[in-house]
Computed example of a mutant assay.
Amino acid sequence: MRALTLAVLLAVAAMPAAAQPEPGDARAGLRLAATWCANCHQVAPGGPGPSTDAAPTFRSIARMTSTTSMSLRAFLQTPHPSMPDYRLTREELDDVVAYLISLKR
């Protein structure tokens, strides 16, 4: 009986954790992006875009196979010469990432 109990416990421990919802508010992320990012990016599908094609649309960023919550967080927290350094708060970062991830659907 002990062996069976141990086997069940080990099997349960090896199972992936239940999916946790991502932090952040996608609607707030859209508002932030419209304020800060729309000068260079088209932030909403079908929405107004910048005057040049220099920066990808948010939808094209979201649909890249390499785009994950983690990759977006790393990118947005690393200074890039072609992007302003907005120094997002944790909540703002969560919101912008939630918005970008929502565009994958």
Rank of each mutant, 00 (worst) to 15 (best):
S102Y: 14
M1R: 08
P84I: 09
A14D: 08
L88V: 07
S69P: 02
N39P: 04
K104D: 00
R105P: 15
A74T: 15
C37V: 09
N39L: 13
G47C: 07
S69I: 08
S69R: 09
A11C: 12
A54Y: 02
L103V: 10
A17H: 11
T5H: 02
L10S: 03
Q42K: 12
G46H: 12
M70E: 13
G46Q: 10
V97N: 04
L4G: 07
C40T: 04
R87K: 09
R59N: 00
R63N: 07
G47F: 00
M83E: 01
L32W: 09
S66Y: 00
E92Y: 00
A98D: 10
W36C: 08
T67F: 00
Y86L: 15
P56T: 10
P56L: 08
P50K: 01
S51G: 11
R27Q: 13
L10Q: 01
H41Y: 01
R27M: 06
C37A: 09
V96E: 00
G49A: 14
L4E: 01
A19K: 11
A13P: 04
R31T: 10
L88D: 00
P23Q: 12
Q42A: 12
P45I: 02
L6W: 04
T35I: 04
N39W: 09
P84E: 00
M1F: 11
P23C: 13
A74F: 03
T35L: 08
T89Y: 06
V12M: 13
L93G: 03
C40P: 10
A7M: 02
C40Y: 03
M70Q: 15
E91F: 07
P45K: 06
H41M: 07
T78R: 15
H41R: 08
T65L: 00
L93V: 03
G47S: 07
V8W: 13
A17T: 11
L103T: 05
G24R: 05
L9D: 10
A62C: 04
T89N: 00
H41L: 07
R90K: 14
L10A: 13
Y86A: 12
P45C: 12
A14Y: 00
T52Q: 06
P48D: 11
A11S: 13
D25H: 11
L10H: 03
T65N: 14
L88P: 03
L72K: 05
A17M: 03
L76N: 09
A18T: 06
A26N: 07
A74D: 11
L30R: 06
A34D: 09
L93Q: 01
F58P: 04
A74N: 13
L4V: 05
M15F: 01
F58N: 01
Q77M: 14
T52N: 11
T52W: 01
R31S: 10
C37R: 02
M83W: 02
K104R: 14
L4Y: 01
T89V: 12
A3G: 05
Y99Q: 10
P45R: 14
A54H: 02
R87N: 10
Y99G: 04
A14S: 13
L93F: 07
P84F: 01
P21W: 07
W36G: 01
V12W: 01
T67C: 02
R87A: 01
A55F: 12
A14I: 03
G47D: 10
A13R: 07
T57F: 06
M1T: 04
T52S: 15
R105V: 12
C40E: 08
P16R: 14
A26G: 06
A13Y: 09
M70H: 12
